[in-house]
Design a protein around this nucleic acid. Structure first.
Length: 327
DNA sequence: ATGTCCCACCGCGTGGGA
């Protein structure tokens, strides 16, 4: 494994991974994120482009769903270690919106928080309920002793400074006081909103909808966030948005959003942690989960990090299908 | 209310979701 002095962690709502695969591969090649959290795969497990991502040099875990939702974590030149593939707190929830892994010595929660529109209504209730479950789980992570980042599409515009013009969005679920209050409570646990911490005075957007030429006019919203726990916070070096990806033809409505982290203290000039350490960290965190949740960790879908496309294709073809909880 | 794009299929247009 190559030595790394810095670690780049990104989140990218791809809005359909099959449609967006060329953009995804182009972005991975150009920006080389060490960890990439993806949302809105809009693809079943079997439809995940595992071979292409493996050929690009990334190990991956994913939780798919036909048509909607779906999240994945890609790790450059290594395998993510699964911690959990379900947000605890509602066994009846079948939407694929959460995946937590250990990679490169950090714990990474990849999340796709419900949009919640129209509001009020059952979808908004589901959003707030999901948020409460996230708050509860985040509380177990914030002081766990391991470096943790919670990255994803939160579907929350934290303040009026995080949108081009709140006027037209006042009734939208993304701006509701309940949504914002839940996000504020998350930060109050001790999480740091990385983009805002490093750019307190700057208008930064991560999402521009497809309507009314909002991208061309830079009428955006900041809804993709990377939250760091206090253990990880001192290592934050940079944060930004890869706006060029939003400018591509047939782009996702989101742009990749990223942070750069310093190498882990105590590891001289190299954050490439031994795999055993990562696994130990993953197990320690996983052990805190209730036994019930742990039994849900069934088969793990992953791709080898080796760049051997042919072998990858074979391996993918022979891979055991992952059991989903009976529905 | 509108705008646009992605997904699926009682599939080559339409409806749901964002």
């Amino acid at each position: 494994m190559a030595a790394r002095r810095k670690l780049r962690v990104a989140t990218f709502n791809v809005n359909g991974i099959r449609t967006r695969l060329p953009h995804l591969l182009q972005w991975l090649e150009r920006e080389r994120p060490d960890v990439a959290c993806l949302q809105e795969l809009k693809a079943a497990d079997e439809a995940f482009p595992a071979a292409e991502i493996e050929a690009a040099g990334y190990g991956a875990l994913w939780v798919g769903q036909r048509s909607w939702n779906g999240v994945a974590v890609l790790v450059r030149d290594a395998e993510p270690v699964e911690i959990r593939r379900v947000l605890p707190g509602d066994r009846a929830d079948e939407q694929s919106r959460y995946l937590e892994v250990a990679a490169h010595g950090i714990v990474v929660g990849c999340l796709y928080l419900p949009n919640g529109n129209p509001q009020p209504g059952p979808k908004f209730d589901y959003k707030l309920g999901w948020f409460e479950r996230l708050l509860k789980h985040a509380r177990s992570l914030v002081g766990c002793g391991h470096p943790v980042v919670l990255a994803g599409d939160y579907n929350v515009v934290p303040t009026d400074f995080d949108i081009y013009d709140p006027k037209h969005w006042r009734r939208d679920a993304l701006l509701q006081p309940e949504s914002r209050e839940a996000y504020a409570r998350l930060l109050a646990q001790g999480w740091t909103d990385a983009i805002r911490a490093l750019h307190p005075e700057e208008r930064i957007y991560t999402f521009w909808d497809y309507f009314r030429q909002h991208w061309q006019r830079n009428s955006g919203l900041r809804i993709d966030h990377l939250l760091l726990n206090p253990t990880l916070r001192p290592r934050l070096l940079q944060a930004g948005v890869d706006r060029w990806v939003r400018d591509l033809d047939k782009a996702s409505d989101h742009a990749p959003t990223w942070i750069e982290l310093k190498a882990e203290a105590g590891v001289r000039g190299d954050t490439a942690k031994p795999k055993a350490d990562t696994k130990t960290a993953a197990r320690k965190v996983a052990t805190k989960a209730p036994a019930k949740a742990r039994t849900k960790k069934t088969a793990v879908r992953k791709t080898a990090a080796k760049k051997v496309p042919k072998a990858a294709a074979k391996k993918t073809a022979t891979r055991k299908p992952t059991k989903k909880p009976a529905s």
